[in-house]
């Protein structure tokens, strides 16, 4: 159960570097616009450009390469699945055919071409997202989303859920270890029964904790209004320069992305 603590990429957001110090609003602007370009690009080059740039930037701020690869593993496996689905279903021109357990598999050229285009978009998109996730904490994200006028309820719930996920994860982990050490995982039947008990206990603990948290919040003056008080400072020269940089990069990326080269 403890693996999630290591999998969450925000453990690197506490590092002191120029990317973690960059204003969250700028990062959100970049991520949204670059993801849009990645989505609309007509060729693989723009999307594939994001991959080395992202890796380079993350290596510069000393993010372990294994952490980056771990983040990319699942999206890449999904992308390969899509490559096969498209190769099997799209187009007419046969490129490769073989028999697999009595089922004739025909991979088509148009489908594989389209599948590879999708794979490049997956790599590009994930490269953009991991830069954001490795350098932005949840409190920064909430402050940024608040600035962009996202509903307060969503932001408050996001901060609540994120804060208590780790506490409940620790509790679940302790119970999991206790079950395991008392032969609660000795057979499939026992494993499933132990999971049921664990899930039930987790809900009970969450309910009790919610009551305690509410009491604590009321003591501090909470009456059902907003709970977030973080306000971002006005933009400085650096932020304006970053927006200007984005305005300069965007037309170039849009131009390259619109070329029908591949």
């Amino acid at each position: 159960m403890g693996f999630l603590h290591h999998t969450f990429s925000d453990i690197y957001t506490r590092q002191d570097n120029w990317l973690t110090k960059t204003d969250v609003r700028i990062k959100l602007l970049y991520i949204v616009l670059l993801l849009t370009i990645n989505l609309w690009s007509q060729n693989i080059f723009v999307s594939l450009l994001f991959l080395p740039v992202s890796f380079l930037l993350l290596l510069l701020i000393k993010i372990p390469i294994m952490a980056m690869l771990r983040s990319m593993l699942l999206p890449v496996s999904f992308a390969i699945l899509i490559l096969f689905i498209k190769g099997l279903h799209e187009g007419e021109k046969e490129w490769l055919s073989f028999s697999f357990v009595g089922y004739k598999v025909i991979l088509k050229e148009e489908g594989l071409r389209s599948g590879l285009h999708t794979c490049s978009k997956v790599l590009g998109g994930i490269s953009i997202v991991i830069i954001f996730s490795f350098t932005t904490s949840i409190s920064q994200l909430c402050a940024g989303l608040k600035w962009f006028r996202l509903p307060n309820t969503i932001i408050e719930l996001l901060s609540f859920i994120y804060r208590y996920v780790f506490i409940l994860l620790d509790e679940a982990s302790t119970m999991w270890t206790a079950q395991k050490s008392r032969l609660g995982h000795a057979s499939w039947k026992k494993v499933i029964k132990s999971f049921g008990t664990l899930a039930g206990m987790l809900i009970i603990r969450a309910f009790e904790r919610a009551e305690r948290t509410n009491e604590a919040m009321q003591v501090r003056g909470y009456e059902g209004g907003g709970i977030l008080t973080i306000n971002l400072p006005p933009w400085r020269k650096q932020e304006y320069a970053s927006v200007l940089g984005l305005a300069l990069i965007l037309p170039i990326l849009i131009y390259i992305g619109s070329m029908q080269i591949w």
């Binding site: 159960m1 693996f3 999630l4 309820t153 408050e156 719930l157 609540f160 859920i161 994120y162 804060r163 208590y164 996920v165 506490i167 409940l168 994860l169 679940a172 999971f195 664990l198 899930a199 987790l202 809900i203 603990r205 969450a206 309910f207 904790r209 919610a210 009551e211 948290t213 509410n214 919040m217 009321q218 909470y222 009456e223 059902g224 709970i227």
Partner: peptide, 30 residues
């Protein structure tokens, strides 16, 4: 959520906490 929060102020912590519990439940490696 907003409507219920106005009537019962403890509703937001409850949804947040149960949401976190369900999130943890969805991480169980079965």
């Amino acid at each position: 959520i907003k409507r219920k929060k106005k009537i019962v102020p403890s509703y937001l912590p409850l949804v947040g906490m149960l949401g976190a519990a369900v999130f943890v439940f969805s991480c169980f490696p079965i």
